[in-house]
Each structure stands twice: as structure tokens, then as C-alpha cells.
Simulated scan of single mutants.
Amino acid sequence: MSGVLSSVDARTQLVGQNRLELLLFHLGGTQLFAINVFKVQEVMRLPALTKMPDRHPVVRGVTHLRGQTVPVVDLRHAIQMGPLKTTEEEATIIVTEYNMTVQAFLVGGVDRIVNMNWNEILPPPGGSGRNHYLTAITRIEERIVEIIDVEKVLAEIAPYDLDLSEDLYDQELLARIKGKDILIVDDSHVALGQMKQVLTPMGLNIVEANNGLEAYQMLMHWKEQGKDLENDLVMIITDAEMPEMDGYMLTTEIRRDPQLKGTTIILHTSLSGSFNRAMVKKVGCDGFLSKFAPEAMTTEVQRLMRVKLGMEAPSD
């Protein structure tokens, strides 16, 4: 698996076609788990660790990779299954980039990479237990694969600071958008909660959808009702990776619709910034935000709203 990212260019072609690749792994048992390959930098044997004082209980230690100090998280422990028990020969780490940070997850072993369609990725069933840490599930060769909500895991290890200065908010703009709708689309309840904390002070009516298909169906329903989407819907903020329909496909479908094509859309994702900026241009988003940077979100959301209302000229 050392060459897991050797064909990134080929994988890039999957995006925008409602497709993805998943890296499958286990956590010391028979159950398979997965994360998106695009978030993986490297898969390798567990290197030597340095144990830091006062570290979080699920962080095994830190290691040095290519000039960076990288925390190593026991993923089994982080999703409340208990610490991973594995031999030195079996111990594997998956080095990932989320939200502009690099971290490694200790796993029992890596299985393989599979190519999937997002409509094969389903929301997790209701219930308790591990579902609390899942964004989705899928079925591969008659086996259930659980896709972990890594954003939730990381937010529990290092909570985000959401205390924003009132000076960040444009009061003239807020007076004009008060009570208007903003649609936020994400399969992570953590991400939805974080966005709501930033957007609530703007006085908007925040509407949530858990995936691109749900958001698209909501838009179609509003059209059938005769809702004035041009004036009442100020913006859509969408994640990239979601079950059933991803954010790229959602944006593509909106741009194809004569009544919706002028909608302001921001792509809000933990995937690689440089990659997403290329995809923003390809599918026609108006902006891109890395998760989770509350000040940047506040600034960019308001900038694009001012552009929409003619209060500010669009940037080049």
C-alpha cells in the first residue's frame, strides 16, 4: 500500500462524476471501515513515537514525517471501541490531511482501495453505538463497510474556537439579508453545527440538508411551490463528500437548471485546498472554504452576499 497515492491524476477524474475511491481498513477485528482516498497522503508501518505529556487519551504520541510533527491517533479508541491491541508487525498508520492539518490514524491493517459511486454510499441507520461516529455506510461483497466521521473525531480531540468578534459582521449587509434562507449541506453533524454557530448571528433562516440529493430534492420542492429562490435564497454552502450525491454533482445539477443556475454556491470541505480550487472552477462554484475556519467563513460568506446584492464588485 506504500504507493496508495501513485495514481492521483486518475482519481481526480472521478470527481464531478459522482464517484469516489475508498481506502478500506480494519481496527483489530473483522469489521471493515473506510475513508476517502483523497484525504490520504500515505500508508505505512507504525514508526517510533514520542509520548507527549498531557496528550489527549486517544493520541498515542507524535512522530516526525517529512519535516512535520504528526500526531498519531488510535482510531479504534477515538470511536469508543477501546484501545487498539496490535503487534508491532501489524500496526499501520494512515497519514491524512483534514482541514489543512496533517494527522495519522493508527489502524489494525489496511485492506484495499475500492472505486464506488456516491449513490452506493448511504446515510447510517438510526440507533446508538458506533453510528455516532459514522457519516455513511456502504456494502462491498455483501459486507457492510462503515465510513467514519473523521471531522467529529478531530473536533473531539482539539475543539474549534468559535468565539467570533462582532466586528467581523457587516451590520448594513445583515439588515438586508435578515430572515432570508441559506441552505447548508453536509453529512457531518459536527460540520453543520459549526456552520450554524457562524451563520446564526447573521439573522438568516438556516435550512439544513444531510447530502446533495436531499438538498437537490428540497430545491425542486421549493420550485414547485413557486418560491422566489432568486431573492429568498441568498446562498448554498455545500460539502464535497456526501452520500447519494456529492457537492460537485449537486453544483453541476444546479448550474444546469435555468431557474437555479444563478444561485451563489460555496464549496466547504476538508479535502485538499489546491485540488478543490481546481474543482470549484470546473463545476462552477462561486467560492471555496477549507473546513473549519470560522473567521474565513464569516468573511467569505458576507463578501459573496454583498456581490449578490450589488453592494460589492466581484473579485477577479
Rank of each mutant, 00 (worst) to 15 (best):
Val4Ile: 15
Val4Arg: 01
Val8Cys: 01
Val8His: 05
Thr12Asp: 12
Thr12Cys: 09
Gln13Ala: 11
Gln13Val: 07
Gln13Arg: 13
Gln13Ile: 08
Val15Pro: 01
Val15Gly: 00
Gln17Ser: 14
Gln17Ile: 02
Leu20Gln: 02
Glu21Thr: 09
Leu23Phe: 01
Leu27Gly: 04
Gly28Asp: 12
Leu32Cys: 08
Ile35Tyr: 00
Ile35Trp: 00
Lys39Tyr: 00
Gln41Phe: 06
Gln41Lys: 14
Glu42Ala: 05
Val43Thr: 11
Val43Ile: 15
Leu49Lys: 09
Lys51Ala: 11
Met52Ile: 14
His56Pro: 06
Val58Cys: 08
Thr63Asp: 11
Thr63Ala: 13
Leu65Arg: 03
Arg66His: 15
Gln68Ala: 14
Val70Tyr: 07
Pro71Arg: 11
Val72Asp: 09
Val73Thr: 05
Val73Pro: 00
Ala78Trp: 02
Leu84Asp: 08
Lys85Ala: 07
Lys85Phe: 00
Ala91Leu: 04
Ile93Cys: 00
Glu97Met: 10
Gln103Glu: 11
Leu106Tyr: 03
Val107Gln: 04
Val110Ile: 04
Val114Tyr: 01
Asn115Thr: 12
Met116Ile: 13
Asn119Cys: 02
Glu120Lys: 09
Pro123Lys: 04
Ser128Pro: 00
Asn131Glu: 12
Asn131Gly: 00
Leu134Ile: 06
Thr135Met: 14
Ile137Thr: 14
Arg139Trp: 08
Ile140Tyr: 14
Arg143Trp: 01
Ile144Glu: 15
Val145Thr: 12
Glu146Leu: 08
Ile147Thr: 05
Ile147Ser: 02
Asp149Ile: 10
Asp149Pro: 06
Val150Ser: 03
Glu151Arg: 12
Val153Tyr: 01
Ala155Arg: 15
Glu156Phe: 04
Glu156Ile: 02
Ile157Glu: 06
Glu166Ala: 08
Asp167Thr: 14
Asp167Ile: 08
Tyr169Met: 02
Glu172Thr: 13
Leu173Val: 13
Lys178Glu: 13
Leu183Ser: 06
Val185Lys: 06
Ser188Arg: 01
His189Asp: 13
Val190Tyr: 02
Val190Trp: 06
Ala191Val: 14
Leu192Arg: 15
Gln194Phe: 15
Lys196Gly: 09
Gln197His: 10
Gln197Asn: 05
Leu199Trp: 11
Val207Phe: 01
Glu214Tyr: 00
Met218Ala: 03
Lys223Ile: 13
Asp228Leu: 06
Asp228Thr: 07
Ile237His: 02
Ala240Arg: 03
Met242Ala: 11
Glu244Arg: 14
Met245Tyr: 05
Gly247Phe: 09
Met249Cys: 10
Leu250Ile: 07
Thr251Met: 03
Thr251Arg: 07
Ile254Cys: 05
Arg256His: 12
Gln259Asp: 12
Gln259His: 09
Gly262His: 14
Thr263Leu: 08
Ile265Phe: 03
Ile266Thr: 03
Ser270Thr: 15
Gly273Glu: 14
Ser274His: 06
Asn276Cys: 15
Met279Ala: 01
Gly284Asp: 04
Asp286Pro: 05
Lys291Ile: 10
Lys291Asn: 12
Pro294Thr: 03
Pro294Arg: 02
Glu295Asn: 07
Met297Ala: 03
Thr299Gly: 02
Val301Tyr: 06
Leu304Gly: 10
Leu309Phe: 05
